[in-house]
Simulated assay, not measured.
Amino acid sequence: MTIAIPGFDYQRVTVEDDVTLNVAVGGTGTPIVLLHGFPQTHVMWRHVAVDLAADHTVICPDLRGYGASDKPAARDGDGGTYAKRTMATDVVTLVGKLGHQRFALAGHDRGALVAIRAGLDHPATVTHLAILDVLPTLDMWDVLHGSSAAVAFHLYLMAQPPGLPEQMISASADAFFGYFLDGWARNPRAIPADLRAEYLKASREAVPSIVADYRASAGIDVEHDRADRAAGNRLAMPVTVVQQDWGAALGYDAAALWRSWAVDLEHRTTSAGHFMAEEAPDEVVTTLRALLAR
C-alpha cells in the first residue's frame, strides 16, 4: 500500500483464525465504519473519512479478499468463505476489537452488500446504515433481465464455477478492472492516475478472492436474503440509500424495492457516477451527517 488516508493510523486486526484485516482509523467520537467497493480499497473513502474524523471515530477496513487484507482460499462447496454473512461478521469482530460495541455503517458497492447483511444479522450493533449504489442481492438478480442485463455482464461471468472466470480475468486483469474504473465514473479525474494504478495492482493480486466474493452473491448470499424475506426480517435502524437512477434505466421502482427491506428509509438518486465518494465527496458527507442525526 503506497497511498494512505491522511492523518489516519493503520493496523492489522485478526478477525478469524486465518484472516487479518488491514484497517485505517482516525478521529474521535461516536464510531462510523466505511466499507469500500469494487474494484477499490478503503482509500476510496479518503475525502469522506477525513471530514467525518473531525467529530467521529472513522474506521476504514479493506474487506477480506481485497487490498492489504488477507485473502483466504475459498472453501469448496457452500461459498461461505466470502459470503456476505461471513464478511459482515468480520466487520463486527473488527470493530469490537477496536473497542466499540455499536457503530454506524456505510458501504459502497460490494461493501454495501456486506453492510446490508450486517444490518440484518446484527441489528443491535448497527445504529445507522448508509448504502451507496446497490440493491440487496436478491433484488439485484431479480431486476436483471433481457438485453439490459448486459450492463452487469461481470456478475454473470464471476458467478460461473471456479476455473474459467479466474483464468480469463487474470489473463487481462488490468484491462478488466480498468474497464470498470473508467466506465463507471462520470468524472474520471476523481480517481487520479497514481490511485488508479494502485487499485489495479490490488485487484490483479486478488483475482481469486474477488471472483469468490462475486460467486457467493450468486449462491449463498441469495439463500440468506430469501430466508430473511420469508421470515419478514427488515432493517430496523435508520437507512439512507443513495443510487444512480438505475430504476429508470432498467425499468423498476428502486425506492419501492428498498421499502420492503427498511423500516425507516430515505432513498434518493444522485447525479454523480458510481464512485460517488470520490466524485462527489461533499454530497456523501452531507448525506452521512444527515443520517447520523436521525
Rank of each mutant, 00 (worst) to 15 (best):
W258M: 07
R215P: 08
G232D: 10
A236I: 10
Y214Q: 00
D245V: 05
V207G: 08
V222A: 04
W246T: 08
T240R: 09
R229M: 13
S209W: 10
M237L: 01
A230G: 02
A206C: 05
A262N: 03
D221C: 11
D221Q: 07
V211K: 03
E279A: 06
E266A: 14
H274V: 06
V207F: 08
Q244M: 10
I210A: 04
L250R: 02
M276Y: 06
A231G: 09
V207N: 09
D282V: 12
R259K: 11
L250C: 11
Q243N: 15
D245I: 04
D245A: 11
A227S: 13
E205P: 00
I220S: 13
W261E: 12
A262Y: 01
D264A: 14
A272T: 04
G247L: 11
A227E: 08
S209R: 01
S217A: 14
E266D: 15
D264F: 08
P281S: 06
A254N: 00
V207L: 10
G232C: 05
R215E: 05
V239E: 00
E278G: 09
M237E: 03
H274S: 05
A206M: 05
A216V: 09
V211I: 12
N233I: 11
M276V: 15
E223G: 09
I210Y: 09
D253S: 04
Y214M: 03
A227T: 13
V239C: 05
A231W: 03
A256K: 12
S209F: 06
Q244C: 07
Y214E: 02
D213K: 00
I220Y: 00
A262C: 08
H224I: 12
V207Y: 05
A206I: 04
H274E: 02
A256Q: 13
E278V: 11
D225T: 01
R215M: 07
I220R: 10
S271F: 09
A236V: 15
A254K: 00
A277G: 10
G251K: 07
T240E: 10
